[in-house]
Design a protein around this nucleic acid. Structure first.
Lengths: 207, 207
DNA sequence: GCAAAAGTGTTGTTGGTACACCCATGC
DNA sequence: GCATGGGTGTACCAACAACACTTTTGC
Protein backbone atom coordinates (compact mmCIF):
# COMPACT_ATOMS: atom_id res chain seq x y z
CA UNK A 1 0.00 0.00 0.00
CA UNK A 2 1.26 3.41 -0.91
CA UNK A 3 1.16 6.36 1.41
CA UNK A 4 1.30 9.93 0.29
CA UNK A 5 4.02 12.34 1.17
CA UNK A 6 2.77 15.47 2.78
CA UNK A 7 4.67 18.71 2.90
CA UNK A 8 4.19 21.95 4.73
CA UNK A 9 5.07 25.24 3.07
CA UNK A 10 5.37 28.64 4.65
CA UNK A 11 4.60 31.96 3.08
CA UNK A 12 6.24 34.51 5.34
CA UNK A 13 5.29 38.11 4.81
CA UNK A 14 6.74 41.29 6.13
CA UNK A 15 6.53 44.90 5.09
CA UNK A 16 10.13 46.04 4.82
CA UNK A 17 11.07 49.52 3.83
CA UNK A 18 7.56 50.17 2.55
CA UNK A 19 7.44 47.05 0.38
CA UNK A 20 5.58 43.79 0.83
CA UNK A 21 8.24 41.10 1.04
CA UNK A 22 8.30 37.31 1.12
CA UNK A 23 10.93 35.12 2.71
CA UNK A 24 12.78 32.65 0.48
CA UNK A 25 15.23 29.81 1.02
CA UNK A 26 17.20 29.52 -2.20
CA UNK A 27 14.37 30.79 -4.37
CA UNK A 28 11.70 28.61 -2.80
CA UNK A 29 9.31 28.88 0.06
CA UNK A 30 10.56 27.21 3.23
CA UNK A 31 9.07 23.74 3.40
CA UNK A 32 9.38 20.50 5.28
CA UNK A 33 8.02 17.00 5.00
CA UNK A 34 5.42 15.98 7.53
CA UNK A 35 5.13 12.38 8.60
CA UNK A 36 2.10 12.59 10.79
CA UNK A 37 3.95 12.84 14.06
CA UNK A 38 2.30 15.34 16.33
CA UNK A 39 -0.17 17.92 15.11
CA UNK A 40 0.15 20.02 12.03
CA UNK A 41 0.54 23.07 14.19
CA UNK A 42 3.53 21.59 15.94
CA UNK A 43 5.11 20.80 12.60
CA UNK A 44 4.58 24.37 11.49
CA UNK A 45 6.19 25.54 14.71
CA UNK A 46 9.25 23.55 13.88
CA UNK A 47 9.44 24.81 10.36
CA UNK A 48 9.05 28.33 11.67
CA UNK A 49 12.02 27.88 13.92
CA UNK A 50 14.18 27.34 10.88
CA UNK A 51 13.63 30.90 9.78
CA UNK A 52 16.42 33.01 11.20
CA UNK A 53 15.30 35.51 13.77
CA UNK A 54 11.80 34.13 14.00
CA UNK A 55 10.60 32.67 17.27
CA UNK A 56 7.60 30.39 17.22
CA UNK A 57 5.21 32.60 19.08
CA UNK A 58 5.86 35.72 17.08
CA UNK A 59 3.58 37.06 14.44
CA UNK A 60 0.29 35.89 13.09
CA UNK A 61 -0.20 32.49 11.50
CA UNK A 62 -3.01 31.05 9.45
CA UNK A 63 -3.55 28.00 7.31
CA UNK A 64 -3.91 28.96 3.67
CA UNK A 65 -4.82 26.03 1.50
CA UNK A 66 -3.89 22.45 0.76
CA UNK A 67 -2.46 22.14 -2.69
CA UNK A 68 -2.16 18.91 -4.56
CA UNK A 69 -0.86 17.87 -7.94
CA UNK A 70 -0.88 20.47 -10.60
CA UNK A 71 -2.22 23.39 -8.65
CA UNK A 72 0.96 23.80 -6.66
CA UNK A 73 3.24 23.16 -9.59
CA UNK A 74 4.45 20.14 -7.72
CA UNK A 75 4.99 17.67 -10.57
CA UNK A 76 7.78 19.80 -11.87
CA UNK A 77 9.78 19.45 -8.68
CA UNK A 78 11.46 16.10 -8.19
CA UNK A 79 11.58 14.83 -4.65
CA UNK A 80 8.63 16.90 -3.59
CA UNK A 81 5.29 16.16 -1.98
CA UNK A 82 1.99 14.75 -3.12
CA UNK A 83 0.17 17.40 -1.19
CA UNK A 84 1.42 20.61 0.34
CA UNK A 85 -0.35 22.37 3.17
CA UNK A 86 0.48 26.04 2.94
CA UNK A 87 0.46 28.49 5.84
CA UNK A 88 1.05 32.16 5.91
CA UNK A 89 2.81 34.02 8.66
CA UNK A 90 3.07 37.75 9.23
CA UNK A 91 6.18 39.13 10.82
CA UNK A 92 6.94 42.69 11.87
CA UNK A 93 9.87 44.35 10.18
CA UNK A 94 11.25 45.31 13.58
CA UNK A 95 11.66 41.62 14.46
CA UNK A 96 13.92 40.84 11.52
CA UNK A 97 17.64 41.11 12.27
CA UNK A 98 19.31 43.63 10.00
CA UNK A 99 21.75 41.13 8.51
CA UNK A 100 19.00 38.83 7.25
CA UNK A 101 16.91 41.26 5.27
CA UNK A 102 18.39 40.15 1.99
CA UNK A 103 16.54 36.86 2.25
CA UNK A 104 13.29 38.77 2.00
CA UNK A 105 12.27 39.56 -1.56
CA UNK A 106 9.76 42.19 -2.58
CA UNK A 107 6.58 40.57 -3.85
CA UNK A 108 6.19 40.76 -7.59
CA UNK A 109 3.18 39.21 -9.27
CA UNK A 110 5.24 38.70 -12.40
CA UNK A 111 8.13 36.84 -10.80
CA UNK A 112 8.42 33.23 -11.85
CA UNK A 113 8.99 31.21 -8.76
CA UNK A 114 7.68 27.68 -8.79
CA UNK A 115 5.66 28.75 -5.80
CA UNK A 116 4.10 31.78 -7.42
CA UNK A 117 0.58 30.37 -7.39
CA UNK A 118 0.75 29.84 -3.66
CA UNK A 119 2.22 33.25 -3.03
CA UNK A 120 -0.34 35.00 -5.18
CA UNK A 121 -3.11 33.25 -3.35
CA UNK A 122 -1.57 34.24 -0.04
CA UNK A 123 -1.37 37.87 -1.09
CA UNK A 124 -5.04 37.92 -2.00
CA UNK A 125 -5.94 36.43 1.34
CA UNK A 126 -3.76 38.99 3.11
CA UNK A 127 -5.34 41.87 1.23
CA UNK A 128 -8.75 40.67 2.19
CA UNK A 129 -7.82 40.05 5.80
CA UNK A 130 -6.25 43.42 6.28
CA UNK A 131 -9.45 45.16 5.24
CA UNK A 132 -11.74 43.23 7.52
CA UNK A 133 -9.63 42.54 10.60
CA UNK A 134 -7.00 44.13 12.81
CA UNK A 135 -4.41 41.63 11.59
CA UNK A 136 -1.85 44.30 10.69
CA UNK A 137 -1.00 44.49 14.37
CA UNK A 138 1.39 41.64 13.61
CA UNK A 139 3.31 43.70 11.10
CA UNK A 140 4.01 46.69 13.34
CA UNK A 141 5.76 47.31 16.62
CA UNK A 142 3.52 47.71 19.63
CA UNK A 143 3.57 51.47 19.25
CA UNK A 144 3.48 53.24 15.92
CA UNK A 145 2.30 56.35 14.18
CA UNK A 146 -0.64 56.56 11.82
CA UNK A 147 1.71 57.22 8.93
CA UNK A 148 3.59 54.02 9.64
CA UNK A 149 0.30 52.18 9.72
CA UNK A 150 -0.77 53.73 6.46
CA UNK A 151 2.47 52.72 4.77
CA UNK A 152 1.87 49.12 5.77
CA UNK A 153 -1.62 49.19 4.30
CA UNK A 154 -0.36 50.76 1.11
CA UNK A 155 2.35 48.14 0.72
CA UNK A 156 -0.13 45.30 1.15
CA UNK A 157 -2.85 46.72 -1.04
CA UNK A 158 -0.36 47.89 -3.61
CA UNK A 159 -1.87 51.32 -4.01
CA UNK A 160 -1.65 54.73 -2.34
CA UNK A 161 -4.36 55.74 0.11
CA UNK A 162 -5.71 59.17 0.92
CA UNK A 163 -4.31 60.35 4.22
CA UNK A 164 -7.43 62.02 5.59
CA UNK A 165 -9.78 59.25 4.60
CA UNK A 166 -7.44 56.64 5.95
CA UNK A 167 -7.21 58.28 9.37
CA UNK A 168 -10.94 58.88 9.56
CA UNK A 169 -11.65 55.27 8.70
CA UNK A 170 -9.10 53.62 10.93
CA UNK A 171 -9.95 55.76 13.93
CA UNK A 172 -13.68 55.22 13.49
CA UNK A 173 -13.14 51.46 13.73
CA UNK A 174 -12.15 51.90 17.36
CA UNK A 175 -9.37 49.32 17.25
CA UNK A 176 -6.61 51.78 18.13
CA UNK A 177 -5.70 53.47 21.39
CA UNK A 178 -4.07 56.87 21.47
CA UNK A 179 -1.09 56.69 23.84
CA UNK A 180 -0.94 60.49 23.98
CA UNK A 181 2.76 60.21 23.39
CA UNK A 182 4.58 61.88 20.54
CA UNK A 183 7.35 60.51 18.43
CA UNK A 184 9.71 62.53 16.31
CA UNK A 185 11.15 60.93 13.19
CA UNK A 186 13.75 63.05 11.49
CA UNK A 187 13.33 66.77 11.25
CA UNK A 188 9.57 66.97 10.97
CA UNK A 189 6.71 67.61 13.31
CA UNK A 190 6.36 64.80 15.90
CA UNK A 191 3.58 62.32 15.27
CA UNK A 192 1.00 60.91 17.66
CA UNK A 193 1.71 57.40 18.86
CA UNK A 194 -0.96 54.68 18.83
CA UNK A 195 -1.26 51.02 19.75
CA UNK A 196 -3.76 48.32 18.94
CA UNK A 197 -6.25 47.77 21.72
CA UNK A 198 -5.71 44.05 21.33
CA UNK A 199 -3.11 41.80 19.74
CA UNK A 200 -5.64 39.08 19.04
CA UNK A 201 -7.28 38.74 15.66
CA UNK A 202 -10.53 40.69 15.68
CA UNK A 203 -13.04 41.02 12.93
CA UNK A 204 -14.06 44.59 12.34
CA UNK A 205 -17.66 45.48 12.90
CA UNK A 206 -19.04 46.69 9.60
CA UNK A 207 -22.60 46.79 10.85
CA UNK B 1 9.24 5.60 9.57
CA UNK B 2 5.62 6.46 10.19
CA UNK B 3 3.32 7.89 7.58
CA UNK B 4 0.23 9.84 8.35
CA UNK B 5 -3.25 8.78 7.40
CA UNK B 6 -5.09 11.37 5.44
CA UNK B 7 -8.85 11.54 5.13
CA UNK B 8 -11.20 13.52 2.98
CA UNK B 9 -14.50 14.74 4.37
CA UNK B 10 -17.42 16.18 2.50
CA UNK B 11 -19.85 18.80 3.71
CA UNK B 12 -22.76 18.57 1.33
CA UNK B 13 -25.28 21.38 1.47
CA UNK B 14 -28.67 21.77 -0.04
CA UNK B 15 -31.63 24.01 0.65
CA UNK B 16 -34.56 21.67 1.03
CA UNK B 17 -38.02 22.87 1.77
CA UNK B 18 -36.69 26.28 2.78
CA UNK B 19 -34.12 24.90 5.20
CA UNK B 20 -30.36 24.63 4.94
CA UNK B 21 -29.56 20.92 5.13
CA UNK B 22 -26.43 18.79 5.40
CA UNK B 23 -25.98 15.27 4.16
CA UNK B 24 -25.05 12.59 6.73
CA UNK B 25 -23.99 8.95 6.60
CA UNK B 26 -24.98 7.48 9.94
CA UNK B 27 -24.57 10.76 11.81
CA UNK B 28 -21.22 11.61 10.29
CA UNK B 29 -20.00 13.47 7.28
CA UNK B 30 -19.14 11.22 4.35
CA UNK B 31 -15.42 10.55 4.41
CA UNK B 32 -12.80 8.35 2.85
CA UNK B 33 -9.14 7.61 3.38
CA UNK B 34 -6.74 8.97 0.83
CA UNK B 35 -3.50 7.18 0.11
CA UNK B 36 -1.93 9.59 -2.30
CA UNK B 37 -3.01 7.86 -5.46
CA UNK B 38 -4.09 10.36 -8.05
CA UNK B 39 -4.93 13.93 -7.23
CA UNK B 40 -7.00 15.12 -4.33
CA UNK B 41 -9.66 16.25 -6.75
CA UNK B 42 -10.01 12.76 -8.16
CA UNK B 43 -10.38 11.35 -4.68
CA UNK B 44 -13.11 13.84 -3.94
CA UNK B 45 -14.82 12.83 -7.17
CA UNK B 46 -14.88 9.27 -5.97
CA UNK B 47 -16.21 10.15 -2.57
CA UNK B 48 -18.86 12.26 -4.23
CA UNK B 49 -20.02 9.31 -6.27
CA UNK B 50 -20.91 7.53 -3.06
CA UNK B 51 -23.62 10.03 -2.33
CA UNK B 52 -26.87 8.70 -3.77
CA UNK B 53 -28.21 10.75 -6.58
CA UNK B 54 -25.14 12.89 -6.92
CA UNK B 55 -23.09 12.77 -10.09
CA UNK B 56 -19.55 14.03 -10.01
CA UNK B 57 -19.99 17.02 -12.21
CA UNK B 58 -23.07 18.37 -10.49
CA UNK B 59 -23.02 21.27 -8.11
CA UNK B 60 -20.30 23.52 -6.86
CA UNK B 61 -17.26 22.24 -5.00
CA UNK B 62 -14.61 24.01 -2.97
CA UNK B 63 -11.86 23.01 -0.60
CA UNK B 64 -12.65 24.18 2.92
CA UNK B 65 -9.80 23.57 5.31
CA UNK B 66 -7.36 20.93 6.41
CA UNK B 67 -8.08 19.88 9.96
CA UNK B 68 -5.62 18.07 12.13
CA UNK B 69 -5.68 16.75 15.66
CA UNK B 70 -7.93 18.49 18.07
CA UNK B 71 -9.54 21.01 15.77
CA UNK B 72 -11.57 18.42 13.94
CA UNK B 73 -12.42 16.47 17.03
CA UNK B 74 -10.50 13.61 15.50
CA UNK B 75 -8.85 12.08 18.56
CA UNK B 76 -12.23 11.08 19.84
CA UNK B 77 -12.87 8.89 16.82
CA UNK B 78 -11.02 5.61 16.78
CA UNK B 79 -9.74 4.46 13.42
CA UNK B 80 -9.81 7.90 11.97
CA UNK B 81 -7.30 10.12 10.25
CA UNK B 82 -4.37 12.22 11.33
CA UNK B 83 -5.48 14.97 9.05
CA UNK B 84 -8.76 15.52 7.30
CA UNK B 85 -9.11 17.70 4.23
CA UNK B 86 -12.65 19.01 4.16
CA UNK B 87 -14.55 20.07 1.05
CA UNK B 88 -17.93 21.57 0.68
CA UNK B 89 -20.32 20.85 -2.13
CA UNK B 90 -23.55 22.59 -3.02
CA UNK B 91 -26.36 20.61 -4.54
CA UNK B 92 -29.70 21.79 -5.85
CA UNK B 93 -32.77 20.42 -4.14
CA UNK B 94 -34.17 19.43 -7.53
CA UNK B 95 -31.29 17.01 -8.04
CA UNK B 96 -32.01 15.01 -4.93
CA UNK B 97 -34.26 11.97 -5.48
CA UNK B 98 -37.37 12.17 -3.35
CA UNK B 99 -36.69 8.94 -1.52
CA UNK B 100 -33.32 10.08 -0.22
CA UNK B 101 -34.28 13.35 1.40
CA UNK B 102 -34.32 11.84 4.87
CA UNK B 103 -30.54 11.57 4.80
CA UNK B 104 -30.36 15.33 4.66
CA UNK B 105 -30.62 16.96 8.09
CA UNK B 106 -31.47 20.59 8.71
CA UNK B 107 -28.43 22.48 9.93
CA UNK B 108 -28.56 23.29 13.61
CA UNK B 109 -25.68 25.14 15.25
CA UNK B 110 -26.54 23.47 18.53
CA UNK B 111 -26.49 19.88 17.29
CA UNK B 112 -23.67 17.77 18.67
CA UNK B 113 -22.20 15.89 15.81
CA UNK B 114 -18.52 15.07 16.09
CA UNK B 115 -18.17 17.04 12.90
CA UNK B 116 -19.93 20.13 14.14
CA UNK B 117 -16.80 22.29 14.05
CA UNK B 118 -16.29 21.50 10.39
CA UNK B 119 -19.90 22.07 9.54
CA UNK B 120 -20.06 25.38 11.36
CA UNK B 121 -16.99 26.54 9.54
CA UNK B 122 -18.50 25.48 6.24
CA UNK B 123 -21.70 27.40 6.96
CA UNK B 124 -19.76 30.56 7.64
CA UNK B 125 -17.88 30.17 4.41
CA UNK B 126 -21.11 29.57 2.55
CA UNK B 127 -22.73 32.64 4.07
CA UNK B 128 -19.82 34.75 3.02
CA UNK B 129 -19.64 33.27 -0.46
CA UNK B 130 -23.28 33.75 -1.16
CA UNK B 131 -23.02 37.46 -0.46
CA UNK B 132 -20.04 38.09 -2.71
CA UNK B 133 -20.50 35.65 -5.58
CA UNK B 134 -23.18 34.10 -7.76
CA UNK B 135 -22.58 30.70 -6.17
CA UNK B 136 -26.25 30.11 -5.37
CA UNK B 137 -26.72 29.14 -9.00
CA UNK B 138 -25.69 25.68 -7.83
CA UNK B 139 -28.59 25.44 -5.40
CA UNK B 140 -31.36 26.24 -7.85
CA UNK B 141 -32.71 24.79 -11.05
CA UNK B 142 -31.70 26.58 -14.23
CA UNK B 143 -34.87 28.61 -14.18
CA UNK B 144 -36.43 29.99 -11.04
CA UNK B 145 -38.44 32.87 -9.66
CA UNK B 146 -37.10 35.69 -7.52
CA UNK B 147 -39.08 34.37 -4.56
CA UNK B 148 -37.42 30.99 -4.86
CA UNK B 149 -34.06 32.71 -4.97
CA UNK B 150 -34.90 34.79 -1.94
CA UNK B 151 -35.90 31.72 0.02
CA UNK B 152 -32.54 30.13 -0.68
CA UNK B 153 -30.75 33.23 0.57
CA UNK B 154 -32.88 33.35 3.67
CA UNK B 155 -32.21 29.70 4.46
CA UNK B 156 -28.46 30.18 4.14
CA UNK B 157 -28.25 33.44 6.02
CA UNK B 158 -30.72 32.25 8.63
CA UNK B 159 -32.74 35.43 8.62
CA UNK B 160 -35.61 36.95 6.67
CA UNK B 161 -34.86 39.50 3.97
CA UNK B 162 -36.91 42.42 2.78
CA UNK B 163 -38.54 41.58 -0.54
CA UNK B 164 -38.15 44.95 -2.22
CA UNK B 165 -34.56 45.50 -1.14
CA UNK B 166 -33.64 41.99 -2.10
CA UNK B 167 -35.00 42.33 -5.61
CA UNK B 168 -33.45 45.73 -6.13
CA UNK B 169 -30.06 44.45 -5.01
CA UNK B 170 -30.02 41.20 -6.90
CA UNK B 171 -31.22 42.76 -10.12
CA UNK B 172 -28.73 45.60 -9.89
CA UNK B 173 -25.90 43.08 -9.77
CA UNK B 174 -26.66 42.12 -13.33
CA UNK B 175 -26.04 38.42 -12.81
CA UNK B 176 -29.58 37.37 -13.73
CA UNK B 177 -31.33 37.21 -17.06
CA UNK B 178 -35.07 37.67 -17.36
CA UNK B 179 -36.48 34.86 -19.49
CA UNK B 180 -39.71 36.80 -19.98
CA UNK B 181 -41.57 33.63 -19.12
CA UNK B 182 -44.07 33.33 -16.32
CA UNK B 183 -44.53 30.50 -13.91
CA UNK B 184 -47.59 29.88 -11.81
CA UNK B 185 -47.20 28.15 -8.48
CA UNK B 186 -50.47 27.28 -6.81
CA UNK B 187 -53.38 29.65 -6.94
CA UNK B 188 -51.45 32.92 -6.87
CA UNK B 189 -50.30 35.42 -9.43
CA UNK B 190 -47.66 33.95 -11.79
CA UNK B 191 -44.07 34.98 -11.15
CA UNK B 192 -41.39 36.08 -13.57
CA UNK B 193 -38.80 33.44 -14.43
CA UNK B 194 -35.07 34.17 -14.33
CA UNK B 195 -31.81 32.34 -14.93
CA UNK B 196 -28.22 33.04 -14.05
CA UNK B 197 -26.27 34.52 -16.93
CA UNK B 198 -23.47 32.10 -16.13
CA UNK B 199 -23.10 28.88 -14.21
CA UNK B 200 -19.47 29.58 -13.40
CA UNK B 201 -18.43 31.11 -10.11
CA UNK B 202 -18.25 34.87 -10.52
CA UNK B 203 -17.26 37.43 -7.96
CA UNK B 204 -19.71 40.26 -7.79
CA UNK B 205 -18.48 43.72 -8.59
CA UNK B 206 -18.95 45.83 -5.55
CA UNK B 207 -17.13 48.83 -6.97
C1' DG C 1 -65.03 37.51 -3.89
C1' DC C 2 -61.34 35.95 -1.32
C1' DA C 3 -56.98 33.84 -0.32
C1' DA C 4 -52.16 33.73 -1.84
C1' DA C 5 -48.14 35.20 -3.60
C1' DA C 6 -46.18 38.81 -7.01
C1' DG C 7 -44.79 43.10 -7.81
C1' DT C 8 -43.51 47.97 -7.03
C1' DG C 9 -40.91 53.57 -4.85
C1' DT C 10 -39.62 56.80 -1.62
C1' DT C 11 -37.10 58.53 2.15
C1' DG C 12 -33.50 58.93 5.58
C1' DT C 13 -29.13 57.52 6.97
C1' DT C 14 -24.63 56.10 6.42
C1' DG C 15 -20.20 55.24 4.50
C1' DG C 16 -17.01 56.31 0.72
C1' DT C 17 -14.42 59.40 -2.08
C1' DA C 18 -12.31 63.49 -3.68
C1' DC C 19 -9.81 67.27 -2.49
C1' DA C 20 -5.88 71.59 -0.27
C1' DC C 21 -3.98 73.95 3.25
C1' DC C 22 -1.70 75.10 7.80
C1' DC C 23 1.35 73.28 11.69
C1' DA C 24 5.36 71.84 14.46
C1' DT C 25 9.86 70.59 14.40
C1' DG C 26 15.12 69.90 13.04
C1' DC C 27 18.58 71.63 10.63
C1' DG D 1 13.71 80.32 7.08
C1' DC D 2 12.97 76.32 4.82
C1' DA D 3 12.35 71.47 4.17
C1' DT D 4 9.93 67.56 6.08
C1' DG D 5 6.27 64.97 7.39
C1' DG D 6 1.92 65.69 10.68
C1' DG D 7 -2.53 66.94 11.06
C1' DT D 8 -7.29 68.61 9.81
C1' DG D 9 -12.90 69.41 7.33
C1' DT D 10 -16.35 69.62 3.77
C1' DA D 11 -19.27 68.43 0.01
C1' DC D 12 -20.98 65.05 -3.13
C1' DC D 13 -22.60 60.57 -4.20
C1' DA D 14 -23.78 55.70 -3.82
C1' DA D 15 -25.39 51.96 -1.12
C1' DC D 16 -28.38 50.30 2.47
C1' DA D 17 -32.50 49.96 5.53
C1' DA D 18 -37.15 50.72 6.68
C1' DC D 19 -41.58 50.62 5.26
C1' DA D 20 -47.32 49.32 2.83
C1' DC D 21 -50.18 48.86 -0.74
C1' DT D 22 -51.95 47.16 -5.42
C1' DT D 23 -52.11 43.31 -8.88
C1' DT D 24 -52.97 38.86 -10.82
C1' DT D 25 -54.30 34.52 -10.54
C1' DG D 26 -56.86 29.85 -8.76
C1' DC D 27 -60.40 28.23 -6.39
Amino acid sequence: MKYQRTGIKLVLFSVIDGKLCVFFENHMLPSVAWRGEGSLDQAVDELTRRVPGLATDQGYREQLYTFSGVEAGLPAQAGEYDIAIAYFVLLGEHKIPQGLRDRWIAYDARANSTDLAIITYAVQRLQWKVEYTNVVYSLLPQEFTLSQLQRVYEAILGKPLDKRNFRKKILSLGILKDTKKKKSLGRARPAGVYRFKTQKLTYVEIL
